[in-house]
Amino acid sequence: MQPIADPLLTVDRLTMRFGGLLAINALTFEVGRGQITALIGPNGAGKTTVFNCITGFYQPTGGRMALAHRGPVQEQELAGLTASGRRYDRHACGGLFLLERMQDHEIAAKARVARTFQNIRLFPAMTVLENLIVAQHRELMKASRFSIAGLLGTKGYRAAEEQAVERARHWLEKTGLVDRADEPAGDLPYGAQRRLEIARAMCTQPMLLCLDEPAAGLNPRESADLTRLIRAIRDETGTSVLLIEHDMSVVMEISDHVVVIEYGCKIADGTPEEIKSDANVIAAYLGVEDAETAVAVVEAGA
């Protein structure tokens, strides 16, 4: 296990307690800039809880989550921000954010972290295109001067809207949904809804994209398409990706780095190759919970 040279996100001793239950216990890991990082572990290990902490839906009990838009982060910059009590510093590192201090919508808007949900959360009655336009709400809101310019239909606003539609069209093409742009999102088949959710997250132009089980419920072909899409996102936009996934073939194929957690603690951390041969991981999967997954790990390694 080598330290990542220039992490986008540094999670440091993250702890989350629900009443008497310790869901995450002093978890430390890093998400490399421009990399695909997978967070894996048996059911109930606390993966989604980690996501909810990073994206601000839960207020963590303790620990630090620092995200820097441009690295590498100098130790004193981070220490200074932590001591200052502020939530973020727009000037340090092109934007340095302490996620544990920020609200969910601020994390999405300012720190530019986008996410998808395990149980897809689209706007079902709105069309596919509208879903993608809503994702660009903040920019459009500014361009519409909080609706004043929008009501009057000024040129500036029209241009901004045009640009938003173009960005949406770009991601519709990437996800193969351009033909269904004007249909209600709720009418799409399951696999297309998963892709749409990713496209919607990408329309927020994130620095970090968090995908919660993106391959769940997909058939092998859709799963392969998804793998290509995630890789394209990393390669073409430079967006860093953090994903939770149970399908080990997907994880091992696309990840640059894998973090394994169990009972809220990290048990291993490294490249896919290292993880496959890690004794702790094999024990955790074989011995504790889910024999099928363990077999998948062994097979993927073979």
Binding site: T55, F57, D104, H105, E106, A108, A109, K110, A114, R115, F117, R121, L122, F123, P124, A125, M126, E130, I133, V134, A135, H137, R138, M141, R200, A201, T204
Partner: peptide, 19 residues
């Protein structure tokens, strides 16, 4: 559009940076 999105799914709205 944000109003309608809010009607559809508030949590998704928050994940997209909508206050």
């Amino acid at each position: 559009r944000a109003w309608e999105a809010l009607r559809e799914d508030e949590i998704a709205c928050r994940s997209l940076g909508i206050n």
